[in-house]
Amino acid sequence: MNIFRLSGDVCHLVAIIILFLKIWRSKSCAGISGKSQLLFALVFTTRYLDLFTAFISIYNTVMKVVFLVLAYATVSLIYFRFRKSYDSESDSFRVEFLLVPVAGLSFLENYSFTPLEILWTFSIYLESVAILPQLFMITKTGEAESITTHYLFFLGLYRTLYLANWVWRYHEEGFFDQIAVVSGVVQTIFYCDFFYLYFTRVLRGSGKMTLP
């Protein structure tokens, strides 16, 4: 554990809590892509199956359980409790265009051809693209509430900090997880455009992020 990894995990947790509280308090999931949230729930489910097979640390176990619970709680807010506010028409990204190639790739490129490893690999690849329905929705509607952009900022910062964690671990421990690093770089690239808009528009206080 190093400072980059720990702060990355904290940012991830902060992002998920921001989103959950935003929906809970406003009693609305307007502007939120239910598809991205479903994909993240699928990411956590397929990655954390090792909860049943391996014990790493109390920290590891607790964080995994918290991520899983919050992911499903968020999905249930969007699709059940506040489904009237769900804008399914703007959330029109075709997730099969992500799921099919990601599933195929996880069978082809993995560390070990076992069910758990293939599912872990699937979750890593899927996470790198799971935010696309949300970014697509923002592009389509042309705006996002600032609280939604704070959520995206922390989510993007999380994987960016993991990049620093991997550089650190490579130097300190000789550890290099090729699948996670390559996917993490791809995932971070998707946020670059958003980061630019976030710094130039949201943080200069326009309340909402509107696209040019």
Binding site: M63, S112, P115, W120, D177
Partner: peptide, 10 residues
């Protein structure tokens, strides 16, 4: 356990 790969990251 059917895997010898450990993933300690989240």
């Amino acid at each position: 356990d059917d895997s010898d790969v450990d993933h300690d990251e989240l």
